[in-house]
Amino acid sequence: MTIEFKDVIIQTICRLLTPPIQLYALYVIAHGHYSPGGGFQGGCILGASFILMVIAYDIGEVKRRMAEKMNTIFCSLGVIIYSGIGAICLILGANYLDYGILHKILPVNPVRARALGTLGIEIGVGIAVMAVMISIFLNIASGGEHEGALE
């Protein structure tokens, strides 16, 4: 039994609130070096913004903004970014995930290169966590049908 749920106030507030939430999530990911935060937390906030859209509208609205194929690609893209940065370190002649060697291709000293490598893998982790959160929520909430409002 699916109840059609439409409320102008809730939908407008959620639509207005979603961009600041996503901006804050990007801030949490990018500023994770200097304040509490990082890939996991920022990815969770990004996923929560999409879940808010599902609750206020329906699943079709979110699937129009973030297609299922895109979401599945993002799932694996995060892991690929993470292991790819590790493999770049391997190709440049250091150990796997040893970011200090990245100063050969980045215009910074080795210590700063470590910070930049950390930032890169935080971005990968954030993408992966966001996509997995959305995928788990959509699949469990709709029982795999991926359509209609929540019951």
């Binding site: 996991f40 966590v129 788990i136 699949n139 469990i140 029982g143």
Partner: peptide
């Protein structure tokens, strides 16, 4: 461990469904 907990919870709920 927290993120693994969330993943475990999601997979367990899928199995329960």
């Amino acid at each position: 461990a927290i993120v693994v907990m969330v993943s475990t919870f999601g997979v367990a709920l899928a199995l329960i469904i």
